[in-house]
């Protein structure tokens, strides 16, 4: 489910059918994702906490160019003066939707707080485009 800053369910529009399908899967998930309208693309924070710490996993869905949709996985820094984003890779979809396996793996990875053993095998570690803020 996707929620707003007050944790109320909210509908979000994706940029193109691939993004819409991916967002639909996140919307139907029983895990809550909080959308941040102040960030570029559709930027979601996973709200499932672990036993010891809040989940810092985020996914930003955006289209760097026509025909390409990206789900970029990252964490925000813990320190307020840091401008870094801690990247964990991206699902890059070129002229195709995410498969069911990719979608499930992505959600599990986010829900785990980006546990290394749950890293989806199809995540690209590097990509030739800039990720908007």
């Amino acid at each position: 489910m996707i929620v707003d800053g007050d944790h109320a369910p909210v509908e979000v529009d994706g940029d193109g059918p691939v993004a819409v399908a991916l967002l639909g899967a996140l919307q139907m998930s029983d895990i809550r994702f909080e959308v941040d309208p102040g960030r570029a693309g559709i930027d979601l924070l996973c709200l499932r906490c672990s036993a010891t710490a809040p989940n810092r996993a985020r996914v930003k869905i955006f289209a760097p160019r026509s025909g390409t949709t990206v789900a970029f996985i990252y964490k925000d820094p813990q320190l307020p003066l840091s401008t870094d984003r801690f990247a964990y890779g991206a699902l890059v979809l070129k002229n195709r939707p995410a498969s069911d396996e990719e979608t499930v793996a992505l959600i599990e990875y986010l829900a785990s707080g980006l546990h290394p053993e749950l890293r989806p095998p199809t995540l690209k570690r590097a990509f030739p485009f800039d990720v908007p803020r």
Binding site: D84, A87, R125
Partner: peptide, 27 residues
């Protein structure tokens, strides 16, 4: 670094450079 672009990533295991370019700096 092109080691990050292989299908099976060949990056140095301690490094995060591939995660920075385009994310925290210009590509």
């Amino acid at each position: 670094c092109m080691y990050w672009y292989k299908d099976e990533a060949k990056n140095c295991r301690f490094c995060t450079t591939g995660f920075n370019v385009g994310v925290n700096e210009m590509a």
